[in-house]
Design a protein around this nucleic acid. Structure first.
Lengths: 341, 341
DNA sequence: GGCAATATTGACACCGGTTACCATAGCGTG
DNA sequence: CACGCTATGGTAACCGGTGTCAATATTGCC
């Protein structure tokens, strides 16, 4: 076993002690099939005795590839980012890959330089880009230019399916809003996500499709915009509730904003769900944590992350694997039939 | 600028094009002082022209050190983990360092092997260990054995101050509980954290010290244990509220459990804070998000993370830098005077 | 037993940087 | 003008792995 403080054993030490060449040791490490069992066992014994572990930097240099995946994001939602990280780690567990993370500020003027430097310096074998960054086609161009493999997480049809893992937000929202309609709601508000977000657009469309399918109006006064934060959820919720004719139900484009809507309803003495039904999106931890527990739409972040990581690790298999994942409606206690009237 | 798909330029290309030796290019990269300005400028021009970026793997191999920091954790609290990641990234921004993350399951029987493999394989320049993992002295021994630099994030006095960044949880809790007492509360419950957690112990002691200083009883029936999750917070809260003589205020050892307490109080028709005051710990996003906004104690995770990363990057400076950080009381709306009676 | 075919193994260059040490140029001196 | 010094730059070896290809050992077969 490795002794404290001493230099780590190298492939040369193993070769010398087992009386074979470096190359043979290398073959043992890489499980080359053209190798005598006796030799293999002899070398493996020495490896175990020395506690030898191959140096990943040397390997990366010789192979001209680095067993490191990168994750680039700028996301207000901690739980989502963490779920994603977990999913990636599921995929690389027990492999030689590692995950380096690179959060950025998407409003920074140096964003592109920042990402370029990150990619050039680290020479990753691939990167995953989370929304909303992933919605920007300019990044795809940058990664192509840098010769860096990448996968974008998206919520909609984007250009290049080989570099994409997506969920079907639109259908998920439509299903959720249809449930509200089925329960008798007729005025259903929308707290939509920020301008320029693909996910915001898709969820908006899901809401619209559900209403239009039932011949219900989708007028603009039923829509308020937030920016995926709790505070803006409160503001948007307040704007909708200020109408003369407030909605009896509100769909918010993410859980955090939905929590803001619940919050502001409460401040105004409204009971959720009796006076107002609320539905969120994401099914992050907050959904089950607030009172009342939030009805929401879950998208399988962790599963998608696993898939994204696998695409980077096994590029050949990339195009075979499913890359569109269904969402799931999660009914909880923040929705009910509307109060009559 | 780097052209798409082509092999990246190496130090040899730069040397050839600028008509000097590799070594001279290396000197330029490393800003060696014994170098003619004319030569330097010539080489720098070629570097810019080629878009040359040194290969970090080759560097790591030659220098026998890897510019990568690791972060090991098993934490139920997403916001805390993310804040920590942000802090580390503050510290390594604009440097050549990268951060790799390694979440683990602390109940896994293979935990030690898992961490050992991670360290041996990645050859990091240092790792940061988050609570509750950081409270286990066996890890420190493991890292010492592996010759891996490390910093433990702790909430209490631990063995080795050079490898430790801590916050003063006990004082923070004492201050918070003293505020409750000052408002007139006399029966103050404690939802403590899981057995074996140093942070749980320290926060428990803070509660106890505050009560004892005022001569108030701290009997065991005022204590219920959770495991830092929302569900167990609900259960512990329910246990305390089931007393014949329920507390008028409850301190929960983290925000998530505090949210659970608020939740269960609500289920029983109690109004927070009128019928029950609740204080949490951490000041993660959930604190401001639930209703009513939670009074809590903030520990400066991000600042501490920055400090931890700096300790790993500049080991010489490690012992000079402050390594005990104060907490801060954050009053919000979940506390008030007790209802009389 | 001799030979070709095949299974194993080794020698050596190379990946892209670094360090140790040497060579040369420019310059002041005796 | 030979000499020694400093400033600068080059050469070669090395970090710890990998690929190529040739060398050797073993085996099957006549």
């Amino acid at each position: 076993m490795g002794r404290t403080g001493e230099a780590k054993p190298t492939i040369n030490d193993v070769a010398r002690l087992s009386g074979v060449s470096k190359k043979t040791v290398s073959r043992v490490i890489n499980r080359s099939p053209l190798l005598n069992d006796a030799t293999r066992e002899k070398v493996e014994a020495v490896i175990a005795q020395l506690g030898y572990v191959p140096n990943p930097q040397a390997r990366a240099l010789a192979l001209r590839r680095n067993f490191v995946l990168g994750m680039i994001y700028d996301n207000p939602n901690a739980q989502m980012v963490l779920n994603f990280q977990e999913g990636v780690l599921d995929a690389i567990r027990d492999s030689e890959y590692a995950l380096v993370i690179h959060p950025v500020d998407r409003h920074s003027p140096t964003l592109f330089d920042n990402i370029r430097r990150f990619i050039e310096q680290q020479r990753l074998s691939g990167v995953m880009i989370l929304p909303p960054l992933s919605e920007n086609d300019a990044f795809a161009a940058l990664f192509d230019e840098l010769g860096c493999n990448y996968v974008r997480m998206g919520s909609a049809e984007l250009a290049d399916p080989a570099h994409l893992v997506q969920s079907n937000d639109r259908e998920g929202v439509r299903e959720a809003v249809e449930c509200l309609i089925a329960e008798g709601h007729r005025r259903i508000g929308l707290v939509e996500g920020p301008e320029g977000f693909r996910s915001a657009y898709e969820r908006h469309q899901g809401w619209r499709e559900a209403l239009e399918a039932q011949g219900l109006p989708c007028d603009a006064s039923l829509i308020a915009r937030g920016s995926y934060t709790f505070e803006t959820g409160k503001e948007a919720g307040a704007a909708l509730l200020d109408r003369d004719d407030p909605p009896t139900a509100i769909f918010a484009s993410n859980d955090v904003m939905a929590a803001g809507v619940v919050h502001v309803a409460r401040e105004r003495g409204l009971d959720v769900p009796r006076d107002l039904s609320v539905i969120g999106f994401d099914d992050t931890a907050i959904a089950a944590t607030i009172w009342p527990p939030l009805t929401t739409v879950r998208w399988p972040i962790r599963t998608m992350a696993r898939s994204a990581a696998r695409k980077l690790i096994h590029p050949e298999a990339a195009n075979r694997e499913q890359s569109r994942f269904p969402t799931e409606f999660v009914p909880r206690a923040s929705t009910s039939r509307p109060a009559q009237g």
